[in-house]
Nucleic acid binder design. Structure first.
Lengths: 187, 187, 187, 187
DNA sequence: TATGAATGAGTCTTCATTCAT
DNA sequence: AATGAATGAAGACTCATTCAT
């Protein structure tokens, strides 16, 4: 089906571009198992492909945030839900990191701002409810979260980490950081 | 002086390329305050520039690891030393992440392997001495470390985090992760 | 057909480069009736084009020498055969003269050495059999031969000599020189 | 003396450019034993240098033709005089051949046309006086003359011919060609 | 739909030239 | 006068894109 084809191309593109930001259209087409012509029919122009990838990434991330239901229940548990939901989005996030934020569809900026706000708000809630430490800013926690998610995705694709350990790896780093005062450790 | 100029170009290049992996030679030159031709005089060809940047990154990182003296003293304290030493290297590491590992000078592979081994060995030591948790592999800890360091560097350059908080931000995430069982938290 | 195109480009390149050693890729492409990019598709890089041209020249010249069957029959008649065979090679030889011998494919040096040897040997045979004068060295006769052939080709392309007179022009200069003592003239 | 310096640069430039048409200004300066700055002071711009070289070549060639006094005495003897006079001009002629006639000072075209006319006229005179064969056009004889002169110069600089044999080599090829019917030979 | 040919546009690279020491 | 630094201008090269098969 055409939709499948489209999705397949998007996934393959994300995978490849996350690794090789400068990959040529030829290589992208090959990695998706289609011809250049087909690639061009689905996404007329490299620009278009990148924009669509970013939009898809934003949509997937928004969906993940929504699914995680960050406003409900204990914040530490919500973090785990968020990580779980982000697993399938991770390759797309990695791609964006690689592209250096140069791509930007029209409505995308606001979407990412919204996502950023959602996460920031969530971390702030955790702090206000006394579940998260106060020593780190919500902004940095958000950045660190994205960083660990994309890094885990990268480590998995490099074979340095088992695919099934994604949630564990991110969670086992992030949760202690969120809930444990560093002073407790040093002391 | 010529050496100064060279160093200035390298720094500017690292800064810019970390943000825009596809930055044109024009922009790189401009960011360093010289003309394209001058940039080419110092580093003949984009390839050369990237290779040199990678070599410099490897050298700086090796030096940082050496300075941190990872084999001595309590592992948690050594981690802090390592983070401190890495602060100035971070922009170069960020650059490498962006380039997707496509660059590689001749002797560099072994250098990075050595660095990787040093860090992996260090995290393993911490685990064996009971100072670090056993729930995460040394390989992932190494990746997570690099991830947080580069991310913090990026957040600072984006103005999302104060420059003086570099060590604190990375440490306050990494140390709890290294020393606290996640089960303790969930429970 | 692709092969035709390739040959057409080679011929046009030889023609043009023989006249304008520094011709730009633009002009070469234009003279072949294709775009720069297409020219680059067939011959990636100016270097490659020149190397291929030299190889083709060497092959053509070797074939011409072989066809002339220099070892058989009266030497003066063989010279005429050689000139006839060289007519189509002449533009390529002219090109090489212009490039100043800077181009050199890997196996080409030996090929040219072989051609040089063949001609030198031929002229020596003529001398030993008493058909050619002894007052000029085989080496110079070889050089003079190449010189006249390329010059005739040039004169024709400049419209100073009729194309059909190629063999006559070269032969009528070379044959008397080979067979007549200068002393006979002066005297 | 300044004039000496200038002449030395011109000679070295002619020598080098005859061999390497694309030689860089750096190399030209080095071959003349002066610095780039000095080269630029004497000849502001590559264009200028080439134009001057062409002018000098034309002047020298005109002088050679004048010295040979082509209108006087037996034509065959005049040819020898011409060759003798051309020996020192040969490197400059070789240079022009290499540059593909792209250079052209303002007054130069007429100068070369004049030279060409002088030689053509001379060969025609020889033919009309029955001293030269009628089977070759004056235009081709002129071209062949230049060809042999430059070729001999090249062979000498390559070490394939002894420097002292210049006149002999050119004369022993050209004179028989001018005075002997090819039909006499074949027959 | 896939493939090969062709090209325009944009980037990279080089070199002649000037300036300062 | 010579050398090293710097640059504008010009050319080489690559790649995304289109077309024809």
């Amino acid at each position: 089906m055409a939709e499948d084809q489209r999705a397949r191309i998007l996934d393959a593109s994300a995978q490849l571009l996350a690794r090789q930001p400068n990959a040529r259209m030829d290589d992208i087409a090959k990695s998706a198992g289609v011809s250049r012509a087909t690639l061009h029919r689905y996404f007329p122009g490299r620009e278009t492909l990148l924009v669509v990838l970013e939009q898809v990434a934003a949509e997937k991330m928004q969906a993940a945030v929504a699914m995680a239901d960050l406003a409900s229940g204990p914040a530490p548990v919500a973090v785990i839900r968020l990580i779980e939901e982000c697993e399938s989005v991770a390759p797309y996030l990695a791609l964006l990191y690689q592209q250096g934020g140069e791509v930007s569809a029209d409505g995308s900026y606001s979407r990412w701002a919204e996502i950023d706000t959602d996460l920031t708000t969530f971390f702030r809630r955790g702090q206000q409810q006394g579940e998260f430490v106060l020593t780190l800013t919500p902004a940095w926690l958000t950045d660190a979260f994205f960083s660990l998610v994309t890094s885990a995705s990268w480590s998995i694709s490099e074979g340095r980490v088992a695919a099934r350990d994604f949630v564990h790896c991110v969670g086992a780093v992030l949760l202690p950081a969120l809930t444990t005062e560093r002073s407790e450790i040093i002391a």
